[in-house]
Design a protein around this nucleic acid. Structure first.
Lengths: 375, 375
DNA sequence: GGCTTGGATGAATCGTTAC
DNA sequence: GGTAACGATTCATCCAAGC
């Protein structure tokens, strides 16, 4: 495995909107952006909470619920229309291999997910954000609502080239693949922005750790991340810290001002700490015959599977022969096992020091030689 | 608080369909049941997986996917029509204060949830079933899909008298509220029904523990639980064991026969002991990246072995770098020592108070913050 | 009998490149 | 654009077989 610093080909000079917050209605602002211009979208739309009356804790203190105007919709139909409009406008702006994240709760996420499918987005995962410290259910009439749901989707089903930093995530997760359920605390303490009165500035500020996992998983350094419901600017702050560009859209000037100040204070991490661990997929391809060309493998050399059930002989043209089966290391490996496919690099071994070593080791040596030669 | 054994006023003599499996189409069978006659519904409808081609494990074995006819739909519109039809028929049968559970995955749950809201059901919670042993993502192209989602809803927003055994659940959960994320293994081993050939009888059999928590939470002894997609009869088996009545609907005779035999073998519990239903939780596994998420470790921080022979630097993606070796704390620890394996938690140290402390200490601190969340 | 090892398997929307 | 070749990829658990 190796670390590489892949940077998109984006040219900042061409885009004055980069790393800025656009003021205005979400759809109108999206329509002003060029099509296919952003690598990823993170959206935290209004939840359509439908709270009736006030909610009180057992001690009769009032819960500061989300009751802002922007979270009120006349009906499910109105919410659906709003949802489809911004999802459609966002899809135009997304690059063909870009992906979108949308976070929500049971109040709205089902409508959002259905709308995304209807518009052609292809769901890759639904991710559960499990909260370490969720608000209790004060009335004891339901389960404690201890999670929120994020939908991760590509632009369409055919888009296979989306970014997913599988190897880095796996290495960071004690060498097992990252699951669809994530555990994070809610945003509190010093991270939570306050207004002049000391009250929370924004009702639904998300934790930076959540956004960091999202961006580390699905973007590369230098990518552009769009947030059409920018709010307190968590997406921008994390993007800047992680060496990504951002574009925010927000209607309220108070949020824009606070987010701008917040982001300006962020110090980006040095790029050396940001490079992504990449796996075999990112390594240059090596043809088996080039090992012969390099003198690492000689015609006539014998190859065995790990248990020496089969043997094959290397031929001068880069094919191998096992009995009357002749072909590539992959094809012959598949044939002797009577399988459809086989990775010959890991299947075939050679004798070394009285034991067997996979020829993948020879490929590694060949790659080292190619690097020195500046190939 | 008082303990009470509330039993519904249902009279078995009036209902020959009680504790039986009705054969036939789901909607047609529902239409034959009297309105407002069941206390709870558990539904495990087709997920509409939309699979293309085969999937193989890295060892080239073929994944036995769900490719049954009943899971194939022409389009989202066809699936929506099917969903609305059975949800509507089920709503007629549900008592005014009854509740419904529907389980699904990201393939279908968003459409199901939106349809439920459109038909007037009132969502009380979405519950995440976290699987202890989910199938991996074999190609490394997405996050491991490690959960399924259940929607719990009342018949309408005005129904306030639904059953929720809050105190019993809380007592069973170490005296803290039961959360919306539940941890259970998938159904394997002796619990999994097999056909005559020893293969799994039903492709999607659910674990009894999941159904048991559902019924202990939202029904009372003597209640009637309807399952319109009965399959292998897990709902019936758990209902009988917990002193509830069941009604099943199933199309395939083979499933009906197996479920009947399974349920006949169930011995009802003499007294329902909730404490039997909650196992001791395993110690949470902490990923190194979660220390970064929690702010306990910062990118750029240096790690050393106990004798400071090697040094490594923490990267933003949760990997570490020692010279040109990059990977997990375990892998890099093994590589610098030229060993096959290494426990990075005890091998790597950080500077504290002029000395070195193992990062296992940081893991211990991180666990303290997670324990309450039942990771 | 007890322990170790190898094989099997679970609701899965699971490629990329060159010719 | 279609086809063929390359070659990357798995976690927890249960059970059977072997020692």
């Amino acid at each position: 495995m190796q670390a590489s610093l892949a940077v998109s080909s984006f040219q900042p000079a061409e885009a004055p909107w980069l790393d800025t917050i656009l003021k205005g209605d979400c759809v109108a602002a999206l329509d002003r952006l060029p099509e296919r211009s952003v690598d990823a979208i993170f959206a935290d739309p209004p939840y359509n909470l439908q709270l009736n009356g006030d909610l009180h804790r057992p001690d009769q203190s009032k819960v500061d619920a989300v009751d802002d105007d922007w979270d009120r919709f006349e009906s499910f139909a109105a919410y659906d229309a709003f949802t489809r409009a911004w999802l459609l406008a966002a899809r135009r702006v997304l690059k063909p291999n870009g992906t979108i994240w949308v976070i929500g709760s049971y109040h709205n996420i089902f409508r959002v997910g259905a709308a995304m499918q209807d518009l052609g987005y292809w769901i890759l995962n639904d991710i559960v954000w499990r909260k370490t410290n969720p608000m209790p259910n004060f009335r004891g009439r339901r389960f404690q609502n201890a999670h929120e749901t994020m939908i991760w989707a590509s632009r369409d089903a055919a888009a296979k080239g989306y970014t997913f930093n599988y190897d880095a995530l796996k290495a960071a997760n004690d060498d097992v693949q990252m699951r669809s359920d994530w555990l994070f605390p809610i945003c509190t303490g010093a991270e939570r922005l306050k207004d002049d009165s000391g009250n929370k500035l924004h009702p639904t500020q998300k934790p930076e750790a959540l956004l960091a996992r999202v961006m580390m998983a699905s973007t590369k350094p230098g990518d552009v991340v769009l947030d059409p419901f920018f709010g307190s600017g968590t997406t921008g702050a994390v993007a800047k810290r992680l060496g990504r560009h951002f574009v925010g859209i927000e209607r309220e000037q108070a949020y824009i001002d606070a987010a701008r100040e917040r982001i300006d204070a962020v110090v980006p991490l040095p790029s050396v700490d940001l490079s992504l661990l990449t796996g075999k997929r990112a390594e240059p391809r090596v043809a088996f015959v080039s090992l012969i060309d390099a003198g690492i493998v000689r015609p006539g050399m014998f190859l065995y599977d790990a248990r020496k059930r089969w043997v094959a002989k290397v031929r001068a043209d880069g094919t191998i022969a096992a009995g009357d089966r002749v072909g590539s290391i992959h094809r012959v490996g598949a044939q002797v096992q009577e399988l459809d496919a086989c990775n010959g690099w890991t299947f075939w071994h050679y004798e070394r020091n009285g034991g067997l070593t996979a020829i993948d080791e020879l490929r590694r040596i060949a790659r080292l030689g190619m690097e020195r030669a500046g190939a």
